[in-house]
Design a binder for these strands. Structure first.
Lengths: 160, 160
DNA sequence: TCGTCATGTAATTTTAATAATAACATCAAA
DNA sequence: TTTGATGTTATTATTAAAATTACATGACGA
């Protein structure tokens, strides 16, 4: 299949929202940066809304972060858009008449759980703030800071 | 897409090989338990061979584990069959003309790396031996031990 | 109030990673 | 030499995800 990029796209979306800082962002505008379509962005925002991470009102473009960026973890975002989807997948199609097969998969599942917990623990330590700070560093080292940010964040055309 | 079950299937395969203990296993036989086709099993075995985990000779059914089960980690197996495939995926399709988009994805990548490392560290702590032991526990608690294992592992018909 | 623009959401189509399958050359052993 | 197994490649089918379409609904300004 296609790989899911929901988490990446949603983080992108949230950083974008943060950087917009008050300037009302439309799903169309965000979609431009993520290079996708507005409906997909709205689907992600819908999930974020249900997850209690943003507000968004029908009819007007005014999505806003509810929590501070250091109070939003990567795990929060993952849960909002991917739910309980695991990173590793058991093969549930093994021969059910084979006691070996079934029990092996159950055993593997126990250890996948451990791997999942380790990954989620790390995801819980990473906040949106961390990612935004890292982003600023990247922009700086790329020497793009001046070009993009010189005249301030108020000029949203530079966000595109 | 479909979810990859390569890791699960390969662990299954290896446990099966271990339990067979000397009894020459064919790809067809293993495929029965995993409920897949022999060619797929051979593909996995080919990867394991390249990864230095098993031997397997053309023409005769005689695949064997090279290392002790406590010397084979889940990460070894993952590397053999999935290579460097990450658990989380960046969206590399973001608008390249958007400096924000590109740099955000790069930042996210840094943190995905941390999550990946945490997961892989845990995978490195889990050995095939651990999984086999857990498997025995499952079989016991399921009260199937007697039924399946009573007359010893020599009767490979009970493995199916 | 009406027209415009935005969101919210469901339904459908397209894309892409994976497993399934087929085909066959090669080798081993009875 | 016949049988049966592996090793490998190529093709097809499956399936989860993104892309797209469609439209009802709400906000806001002229």
């Amino acid at each position: 299949m296609k790989y899911s990029t929901k988490l990446s796209d949603t983080i992108h979306l949230l950083v974008f929202l943060y950087l917009a800082d008050g300037n009302r962002m439309t799903s169309a505008r965000i979609a431009e940066s993520v290079k996708t379509n507005p409906a997909y962005i709205r689907q992600l925002m819908s999930a974020l809304k249900k997850g209690g991470l943003i507000t968004s009102d029908r009819g007007q473009a005014n999505p806003t972060l509810i929590r501070e960026t250091d109070q939003i973890t990567m795990l929060d975002i993952y849960r909002a858009v991917e739910g309980e989807k695991p990173l590793l997948h058991l093969d549930i199609h093994t021969n059910p008449e084979c006691g070996v097969g079934v029990n092996i998969q159950l055993s593997i599942g126990d250890f996948y759980r451990e791997v999942q917990d380790a990954a989620e623990k790390k995801m819980q330590e990473i906040t949106l703030k961390d990612i935004i700070e890292r982003y600023y560093e990247k922009v700086e080292t790329a020497g793009l800071k001046a070009a993009i940010w010189a005249d301030g964040m108020t000029d949203q055309t530079t966000l595109g």
